[in-house]
Design a binder for these strands. Structure first.
Lengths: 165, 165
DNA sequence: CTTTCTGCAAAAGCTTTGCACTCAA
DNA sequence: TTGAGTGCAAAGCTTTTGCAGAAAG
C-alpha cells in the first residue's frame, strides 16, 4: 500500500520532469494514463488502460493512451513486453526478471533469478554489447495442470479474460 | 552443404509423414514453402518466403504461406519467434538457444549457452511446469558499434533490409 | 468424384497517422 | 495567444477468414 503510493508519487515526479525537460505539456489525459498505469497489477495492455479509464468515466482516446504509454516507457516508468502474440504488454519498470507464461490460460508471472542476471552481466558476447535481456519460460501453471488432471474429459477451460488473440 | 541437404531431406520426410497422419494433402504449394524455408538462412518472415518464391516464379499466395508455415511449426520443422515487434519470425528448429538482437540494425544472432539450459532444466518453478524458454539479449552489434564510433556526425545508418516496422 | 486446398480479396486486430478543435503555458 | 495535444476516424501492417474454383487422392 504505502510502497505503492510512494512509487506512484515518485513516478509522477519522474514524469513531470520528463515532460518539462522534453518541452511537453502536462495534460489531464497524460496524468490520467499515468495514474491508471500505476494502479494496474502486473501486465496490462493499452486497451486495458483505456477500458479502466472509461469505467471510471475518464475517457481518454485509445490513440492518446498509446502515445502516453510510449512516453512512460521512454522515461523509464513502464517497460514494454512482447510475448507470443502481436500484443504489447506494459508493466511497471523494476529490476530485471524473467516471465513464466502459461500457454493454457495465458497467465504471466514474474520471477527473479540472480543466476540469469549474472550470466548476462558476466558473459562475453564477442563484439555484441548487451543492454537488457528478455527471458520467458513457457509452460503450464499449477491451476491449469490441476484442471487438466481433474477434468480430462471436459476439454478447454480457458478463462476468457486471460486468453488473447 | 551436405548437412543442409540432409536436413532438407529429413524435413521433407517429417512433413510427408505429418501430412499423412493428419490426413492432409501433399500439394505443390506446401512443398514449395517447405523447400523455400529450408533454403533460408537464419530468421525469416512469411513475407520473405512469399517474396523469394515469387522471385523464383513460383507464386504462392501469402495466406497459403502463412498456413503452411504454421503446419511446419506444428510438426517441429520450424520454430516461431517474436521479438520486439508484431512480426512473427521463423527459423529452422534446432537445439534451444538464445538470440542476440541488435537494436540499431535489427540483426539477429543465435547463441547457445549451456548454463541457461541448465537453469531452466534444473530450477523449480513451484507449481509451474516449463516446456520451453525464449531468451533474447538486446544490445548493439559490433558493426553498429564501429559505425557509431567512426561516424558520430552522420546519424542513422540503418540498413533498410534489416529494419522492420 | 469428393473433399481439401488454393488464390484472391475482404476482414480482423493492434497500432499509428492526419486533421480540426481544444487547452496548457 | 499559440502551438502542442486530443479525439475521432481513417489508414497501415501483419495475419486470418470466406468463398468459388482448382486439384489431390
Amino acid at each position: 500500500m504505502t510502497t505503492d503510493r510512494h512509487r506512484a508519487c515518485a513516478a509522477e515526479q519522474i514524469f513531470d520532469q520528463y515532460l518539462q525537460s522534453t518541452h511537453r505539456r502536462r495534460t489531464q489525459e497524460r496524468m490520467m494514463v499515468l495514474s491508471c498505469s500505476e494502479s494496474m497489477k502486473g501486465h496490462f495492455t493499452a486497451e486495458d488502460v483505456a477500458n479502466q479509464l472509461q469505467a471510471g468515466h475518464n475517457n481518454v482516446a485509445l490513440a492518446t493512451v498509446y502515445s502516453t504509454l510510449d512516453l512512460l516507457t521512454h522515461c523509464g516508468i513502464l517497460t514494454a513486453r512482447h510475448f507470443d502474440s502481436g500484443v504489447t504488454y506494459y508493466e511497471k519498470a523494476s529490476t530485471p526478471h524473467m516471465h513464466l507464461v502459461c500457454t493454457v490460460c495465458g497467465k504471466i508471472r514474474d520471477l527473479r533469478d540472480a543466476s540469469i542476471d549474472a550470466i548476462v552481466a558476466n558473459r562475453r558476447f564477442s563484439s555484441f554489447t548487451p543492454t537488457r535481456y528478455a527471458m520467458t519460460v513457457y509452460g503450464m501453471c499449477g491451476a491449469c495442470a490441476k484442471a487438466v488432471k481433474n477434468k480430462s474429459k471436459s476439454n478447454k477451460t480457458i478463462s476468457k479474460s486471460q486468453k488473447r488473440k
